[in-house]
Amino acid sequence: MSVDFNIVAQPRETVGKGASRRLRRAGEVPAIVYGGHQEPQMITLPHNELLKHLEHEAFYSHVLTLQVGDETSSVVLKDLQRHPAKPFIQHVDFLRVTQGEKLRMSVPLHFLNEESCVGVKAGGLVSRSLTEVEVSCLPQDLPEYIEIDMVAMEVGAILHLSELQLPAGVELAHAAGDEVVVAIQAPRGGADEESEGEDSAEA
């Protein structure tokens, strides 16, 4: 993991919609941290600092360091509520990380050599069905992303979930089903359409 994220938060005593609105007006984001065999704790963190962290893709799939007062714990981001019309974060959920216990997290997919793969060079079109996958692993094995090298994919090739090359210690969270991740579709206006056009012209 190449990036470290440190979040400084403050405990909060007041709860409810009115209290949350006052916090947001003051530039703070109401949040909660739970799990880790401890009681949930209500906290607040600066909105501007949170926005800076959210600019990094790794923040969403990374073990974070959360400091609340004098206590420091390892957490992951589990839920993020955004304002439906404005660029504001309304609430955040963090989950405490326990060493030795597996996490279930959504991890982004990075598609490599998409433009230079065999199928695209032959005129094929890339069709992505998934942009992230949910994985299960120990905290120290959590990847920031999973790479998919498409360089050898030909027209008509399909990559399924079961064919993903996962890092050591990482497995898919859902064993059932085998969804399509990415495929190379035949180019539009292929040979069949051309032959149909010729037949129509002759008629």
Rank of each mutant, 00 (worst) to 15 (best):
Pro87Met: 08
Val151Gly: 09
Val118Leu: 11
Arg24Thr: 02
Gly36His: 11
His62Phe: 05
Pro108Ile: 02
Val76Ile: 13
Gly35Thr: 06
Glu194Leu: 14
Glu194His: 06
Ala31Phe: 00
Glu134Gln: 12
Pro30Leu: 00
Glu202Ala: 11
Val182Gly: 02
Gly156Trp: 04
Gly124Arg: 03
Leu130Glu: 13
Ser162Ile: 05
Pro139Glu: 04
Ala9Lys: 06
Gln10Glu: 14
His56Ala: 14
Val126Gly: 06
Gln67Val: 10
His53Met: 02
His53Thr: 01
Gly18Asp: 05
Gly16Trp: 11
Arg82Asn: 10
Leu103His: 02
Phe88Gln: 12
Leu142Ser: 01
Ser162Lys: 10
Gly197Glu: 07
Gly100Met: 11
Glu147Tyr: 12
Ile158Asn: 13
Arg104Asn: 14
Ser2Lys: 04
Met42Thr: 15
Leu66Cys: 09
Ala26Asp: 15
Gln99Glu: 15
Leu142Met: 07
Glu55Ser: 04
Thr44Ile: 08
Leu138Trp: 01
Leu138Val: 09
Arg128Glu: 01
Ala85Asp: 00
Gly169Met: 00
Asn48Pro: 00
Tyr145Gly: 00
Ala201Met: 02
Asp70Phe: 06
Val118Glu: 14
Cys137Gly: 07
Asn6Met: 08
Ile32Cys: 06
Arg21Glu: 05
Val97Met: 05
Glu198Arg: 11
Glu71Lys: 12
Arg25Asp: 11
Gln38Leu: 09
Val92Trp: 10
Leu103Ala: 05
Val3Ile: 09
Glu144Ala: 15
Ser195Gly: 00
Glu202Asn: 09
Val170Phe: 01
Ser74Tyr: 08
Thr98Asn: 10
Lys102Phe: 00
Gly100Glu: 10
Leu166Asp: 14
Ala176Lys: 15
Met42Phe: 12
Pro108Cys: 04
Ala152Lys: 06
Glu132Asp: 15
Ser127Cys: 01
Thr65Cys: 12
His53Pro: 07
Gly197Leu: 07
Asp199Arg: 06
Cys137Ala: 08
Gln90Gly: 04
Ile32Met: 13
Ala201Asp: 09
Val170Ile: 07
Lys78Thr: 13
Glu147Trp: 11
Pro108Thr: 05
His37Lys: 13
His110Pro: 08
His174Cys: 01
Ala9Thr: 03
Ala9Gln: 06
Asp141Ser: 15
His91Asn: 12
Pro87Cys: 08
Thr44His: 02
Pro84Gly: 07
Phe59Gly: 05
Gly27Asn: 03
Val107Ser: 03
Val126Arg: 05
Gly18Ala: 08
Asp178Ile: 09
Asp79Tyr: 10
His83Asn: 10
Ala122Gly: 02
Glu115Val: 03
Asp93His: 11
Pro46Asp: 03
Ser162Val: 09
Glu179Trp: 10
Val107Thr: 04
Leu80Ser: 08
Leu130Arg: 15
Phe111Val: 07
Pro108Met: 01
Glu132Ser: 15
Phe94Ala: 00
Val92Leu: 11
Asn6Asp: 14
Glu179His: 10
Arg82Gln: 12
Asp70Gln: 10
Phe5Leu: 03
Leu50Ile: 01
Val181Tyr: 08
Arg188Pro: 05
Ala26Gln: 14
Met1Ser: 10
Ile148Arg: 07
Val155Gln: 09
Ala191Arg: 13
Lys78Pro: 01
His53Tyr: 06
Gln81Phe: 02
Tyr34Gly: 04
Lys17His: 03
Glu39Asp: 14
Phe111Leu: 07
Ile7Leu: 14
Lys86Asp: 02
Met105Tyr: 02
Tyr60Asp: 00
Gly124Gln: 01
